[in-house]
Design a protein around this nucleic acid. Structure first.
Lengths: 305, 305
DNA sequence: GCCAGCCCTAGGCTTTCCCTATATCTCGGG
DNA sequence: CCCGAGATATAGGGAAAGCCTAGGGCTGGC
């Protein structure tokens, strides 16, 4: 079988027109180079050098092989450099999981942070929902993620809470914003809720269900939509109220619902943001970087834990 | 150290997302593939796959490495094909030695023969003079050659005569062409001779010297030139006569010296054409091809031996 | 909760790698 | 013409890598 070492020995011998000098340059004994070249000739089925008295002379087949051998070694070199670049985060891809709502806190800013420090990398922020992200982690497609966890239970995943964010009640009706919203009042509200597809695992809903559990009711969701922006716009039109993260409210209300406002729940409810990865994993430098940056950014907005 | 085998194992594992299936495809036991991939990761200093329960999942570094690994293996494939092509004479270079005068008999036609049968090859006909060619053979730069040998002696070279060609006297003066030229008359002639640089070893001159040896004289060369064409033109102008190969005379006189003619020497003198190669060499297919074609072509013009 | 699938580890056999020592050959010089 | 320097080939042995079988542990599906 043809090997890289054989090609290296061949090229060095070709350049020096000498097995002995090739051996010196490569740091081997002369018979070793001789053996490698002989094996290469054997595996190719052709003579590459004529052994002629003092020294060796390349055949025309050696002339033919040379540029190809150089190309192979150059490609190997490129491969090694590419990996080294990815290792030092100069190039390559950094993939990080991020739950939808977390984007309001750390999405664009986090990407900017990474690109600012490592301009050569590609960044992938994947995951639409915490359950989605957890599945990616479980299957190994993601190394680590920052997600909102309503319920802190999970098998095989190491969860490190880093910040909490309050859930607030938003409405276009000033009367309903006069005082903090209790579980009792919440149970009577007419709500629009986002993340329909993930309604079972969406962390906001998990928190609300727990809050209402004492009253024995489910959150009264009159309207189900996918995008939180859609929900906010419906609130603006007065078609329903909603409960969303405070961070999202601060960002979205001025833009999408200028006539709406927000009040806390009573008792106050919190979504928890946490770093998650497989419990048994040893994290790569890239993952540790993303965790640090995402944590920092989340904690500048939400309340650190 | 990184190896081709490691890259192969990596790529197959990458494609199948499984060490076991990669092992099946490559025909190895699964632990062998595991070891190769582990060694590749170790030599690159990065993790390429996350071992996650059932199967393995490529990391982003693996995504980065993959195209480079493919390029390396493709380059290896190209190298092997290039050598195979050269081996079967579909591509590559055929280098063959040929003494200057032999070109009149086999030069262009020989090249045409080779290209007709193997359209993809490059052909190099090297050598200006028999001594020059012999030196190339001795140093191993040439594998085999067809040369004119005035003296059949040589150390370490295997010489196989294949044809002989008569030397003829050419002149623009009809009087001097009335009868065959004896050594006595030749010694009185005023000659122009080609191949000045190689005058000591030029086979024509060696033959003439031997012819004149009985008279104790050297050939009376009045004019020395390099190119035989120049010599023929000088003959046309009547400035001197010359002795050249009959084959060259038949080709050159009509074109360059229409008013000149030729007569044999007495006794007739012959140049011998021979296949030459290193005595210890085992000839490549390409060399054997060239020898066969050159011999055939020479023997259609000169007198076979 | 069991079973099947997949990966890892362990141990041993085989091959490759690479070394030193030695033989053979060529070339150049006395 | 022989002899020494220089270059390659051969021989043999120790170290390392490759590869296999057997078995252990973990995961995921039924």
């Amino acid at each position: 079988m043809l090997s890289l070492h054989q090609l290296t020995c061949f090229l060095t011998t070709y350049e020096h027109r000498s097995l002995t000098r090739a051996a010196e340059e490569l740091g081997y004994a002369q018979p070793s180079i001789s053996e490698q070249v002989r094996n290469l000739e054997k595996s190719l089925g052709v003579q590459l050098f004529r052994r002629v008295g003092r020294g060796v002379v390349p055949t025309t087949v050696a002339d033919t092989l040379r540029p190809h051998a150089e190309k192979v070694l150059a490609a190997v070199d490129e491969a090694e450099h590419a990996v080294a670049g990815a290792r030092s985060l100069e190039t390559g891809t950094i993939r990080f999981g991020m739950f939808g709502a977390a984007r309001f806190y750390a999405g664009a800013g986090l990407v900017a942070d990474v690109l600012g420090r490592y301009p050569g990398v590609r960044v992938e922020l994947v995951g639409q929902n915490s359950a989605d992200v957890a599945e990616h982690l479980r299957r190994g497609h993601l190394e680590a993620a920052m997600i909102a966890v309503g319920n802190l239970e999970s098998e095989g995943l190491a969860i490190t809470p880093v910040a909490r964010d309050e859930l607030v009640y938003i409405s276009a009706d000033p009367d309903r914003l006069a005082a903090p919203v209790t579980a009792h009042r919440l149970a009577q509200a007419s709500l629009v809720m986002a993340e329909t597809t993930w309604r079972q695992t969406d962390s906001t809903r998990v928190v609300l269900r727990r809050m209402l559990h004492d009253t024995g009711r489910n959150p009264p969701t009159r309207i189900e939509v996918e995008e939180i922006e859609t929900a906010v716009e419906l609130v603006e039109r007065g078609l329903a109220d909603s409960v969303i993260n405070k961070g999202a409210a601060l960002q979205l209300l001025p833009r999408l619902a200028p006539s709406a406002g927000w009040v806390p729940l009573r008792p106050r409810q919190y979504d928890t943001y946490a770093v998650v990865h497989r419990a048994d994993a040893t994290l790569s430098p890239a993952a540790r970087l993303m965790i640090a940056l995402a944590t920092e950014r989340i904690q500048t907005i939400a309340e650190p834990l």
